[in-house]
């Protein structure tokens, strides 16, 4: 497996971090990711991240669930083996709607979890890539990807230090 290299700048204050992100975006520096121990409001907008398309995936999964439930019930109850239940029509749409609803929720729920794992590169038995254990406690980090191109490393570390990073180091996985 090829190694991944990151340049990490650790910050101890979220306002300094937000300021650093703003400047990095302004100078067209391509950040790999930002890590925070708690949700920081407005960080996605500042990073100019594109919004997730997970909802669209959820909608498609949900639609698949609706169609699955409907076609199975329609085929079984109305086409393949029609049985008279209490004088109701064999194509009893109102009675199927709760099941169609449940299938929609089930498919979109499970599908979105799996998509989320796939998008975040998570799977059972994955070796955790921990940048720094303090990131779950009181530290914030901006990382730059150095795997392919590390020519502007000194530039970037200088930038991070100037923005108030308490520590700048390199991390390999």
């Amino acid at each position: 497996m090829s190694t991944k290299k990151y340049l990490v700048g650790l910050f101890d204050d979220d306002h300094t971090l937000l300021h650093a992100i703003e400047n990095a975006v302004e100078q067209n520096m391509e950040m790999s990711d930002v890590y925070t121990p708690f949700p920081v409001h407005g960080i996605e907008d500042k990073m100019k991240m594109r919004r997730t398309k997970l909802h669209t995936a959820g909608f498609i999964f949900g639609l698949t669930g609706t169609i699955t439930a409907f076609s199975l019930m329609a085929f079984a109850n109305a086409v393949n083996y029609p049985i008279n239940f209490g004088g109701k029509p064999v194509f009893a749409l109102p009675a199927w709607i709760p099941i169609m609803f449940e299938f929609t929720v089930l498919f979109s729920g499970v599908g979105m979890v799996l998509t989320f794992y796939y998008l975040n590169n998570l799977y059972p038995g994955k070796k955790p890539e921990i940048i720094d254990p303090r990131l779950t406690d009181d530290m914030f980090a901006i990382t730059f990807d150095m795997t392919k191109d590390s020519s502007n490393k000194s530039n970037l570390s200088e930038f991070l230090k100037k923005e108030g990073a308490v520590e700048v180091f390199e991390k390999e996985f």
Binding site: G86, G87, K88, P94, A95, I97, P98
Partner: peptide, 12 residues
């Protein structure tokens, strides 16, 4: 709306 309709439709 649907629950009210469906229960009444089903119980008949």
């Amino acid at each position: 709306w649907f629950s009210q309709y469906m229960l009444i439709w089903y119980a008949n």
